[in-house]
Design a protein around this nucleic acid. Structure first.
Lengths: 148, 148
DNA sequence: CTATTTACTTGTATAATACAACTAAACGAG
DNA sequence: CTCGTTTAGTTGTATTATACAAGTAAATAG
């Protein structure tokens, strides 16, 4: 029955998050927000705080500070926008890319160890459903917003 | 290829978390930690801060404060342990159960809306894999700890 | 009966976050 | 061109979840 499945998802999701949020904390290196910003910058190209904030669903001020610490660590460069004296592009640097890559690898390795005994089909199915889930949630959120 | 699937999982998981952590924030009512404590108390019965901390993988002090706010809100009662003058049991109250239940319903409803168009098979499969994932991660964590 | 351990609380610190106030550049109306 | 308004970004302040360390009081071991 679908209801049963949804209940399980609901329960497991809570655990899922707590577990990951916690495990990330100890992970050393990049915290989640830095990771997410760097990832956004590589996958979607240079951007200013405003668009980053929008893309990542965070407050501008949050991004502003986090980006500042990334600049500090020299993982990103703050390039003035030639067409607008107020605006900047944050651009990932060589060391930033490297850091992101290492982090990805580390995260990936943890996952690989955990899912060692999963079959390929299970992995693929989970990947697919997780992705689908994310899309469903985005869609639902947009719908809700346009409803008012 | 399994590697591809794992990469997708890794990517999607990051989004997944950010999304949920954020959406929970606006949810009003119970925050995640309160929710988790209440849920733990209903599913595993009354417990003191120490065992709760262990079960939930949080610091004792964190639980202590969170439990205190739950006592404040009268969602749990702090019952002295008759066999040990230092110890207490936190016990969910009637209003606490009600609150938990409402929250579960609300979370559930959100999920249901988001997954409206999923087939039953997809839901079941996702529920199953999420659960399996959680277990895999716990197992991996324990292994890592016993390794040293 | 004292010393140690245990269950819990409280002090302090950090990190991620939001909202609100601020600064400076850009833009639009006259 | 100047002035008021909007926009991009920063900074002040507050909140929340968290951990670690120090403290308190009860229990237990010698």
């Amino acid at each position: 029955m679908k209801r049963q499945a949804l209940e399980t998802i609901e329960n497991e999701v809570t655990d899922f998050i707590r577990r990951i949020v916690l495990s990330e904390r100890r992970d050393g290196s990049l915290d989640r927000s830095s990771f997410v910003i760097l990832r956004q910058l590589t996958t979607h190209g240079p951007a200013g705080v405003k668009s980053l904030a929008k893309e990542l669903n965070l407050d501008i001020s949050t991004i502003s500070r986090q980006a500042a610490t990334l600049v500090d660590k020299q993982y990103v460069e703050k390039v003035p926008n030639p067409d607008d004296g107020r605006a900047f592009f944050y651009q990932i640097t060589e060391p930033g890319e490297k850091m992101l890559d290492e982090n990805r690898k580390r995260r990936f390795a943890g996952l690989e160890r955990a899912l060692e005994e999963w079959t390929e089909e299970e992995c693929e199915s989970f990947a697919h459903l997780l992705k689908k889930y994310n899309h469903s949630v985005i869609k639902e959120k947009n719908k809700k917003q346009s409803d008012g």
